[in-house]
Simulated scan of single mutants.
Amino acid sequence: MTTVLSDFIGAFVTLFVVVEPLGLAPVFLAATAGHSGAARASIAARACFYAFLILTGAAFGGAALLRAMGITLPAFRVAGGLLLFSIASEMVLGVRLGRDSATAHQALGENGRNVAAFPLAIPLMAGPGAITATLLIAGEAHGDAARLAALIGAILAVVVLCWIVCRLATGVQRLVGASASIVMEKLIGVLLASLAVQFVMDGAKSLFS
Results as ranks from 00 to 15, higher is better:
3 T>L: 12
5 L>I: 08
5 L>E: 02
8 F>Y: 10
8 F>K: 01
9 I>C: 09
10 G>C: 00
13 V>A: 11
16 F>H: 11
16 F>M: 06
18 V>I: 14
19 V>G: 00
26 P>A: 12
42 S>F: 03
50 Y>L: 05
52 F>G: 14
53 L>V: 12
53 L>H: 04
56 T>E: 01
56 T>G: 07
58 A>D: 04
59 A>G: 08
59 A>K: 10
59 A>I: 07
61 G>A: 05
62 G>C: 05
62 G>Y: 01
64 A>H: 12
64 A>T: 14
65 L>V: 15
65 L>H: 12
68 A>L: 13
68 A>T: 13
69 M>I: 14
69 M>A: 14
72 T>C: 07
73 L>Y: 01
78 V>K: 07
80 G>C: 11
82 L>D: 08
83 L>S: 15
85 F>G: 12
87 I>G: 03
87 I>W: 05
93 L>K: 07
97 L>M: 09
102 A>H: 09
102 A>M: 08
107 A>Y: 05
107 A>N: 09
111 N>M: 14
112 G>N: 11
119 P>W: 04
122 I>W: 10
127 G>R: 01
129 G>A: 01
131 I>H: 08
134 T>R: 02
138 A>N: 06
138 A>R: 03
140 E>W: 12
143 G>K: 03
148 L>E: 00
149 A>T: 08
152 I>H: 04
152 I>T: 14
153 G>A: 00
157 A>I: 00
159 V>D: 01
160 V>P: 07
164 I>R: 14
164 I>V: 13
165 V>F: 13
167 R>D: 07
167 R>V: 11
168 L>R: 15
168 L>K: 15
169 A>H: 09
170 T>F: 10
173 Q>G: 06
177 G>H: 05
177 G>C: 08
179 S>V: 11
180 A>D: 07
181 S>E: 15
181 S>C: 08
188 I>D: 05
190 V>P: 09
191 L>R: 13
195 L>F: 09
196 A>E: 09
196 A>Q: 11
197 V>L: 11
197 V>T: 10
199 F>S: 01
199 F>I: 00
202 D>P: 01
203 G>Y: 07
208 F>E: 03
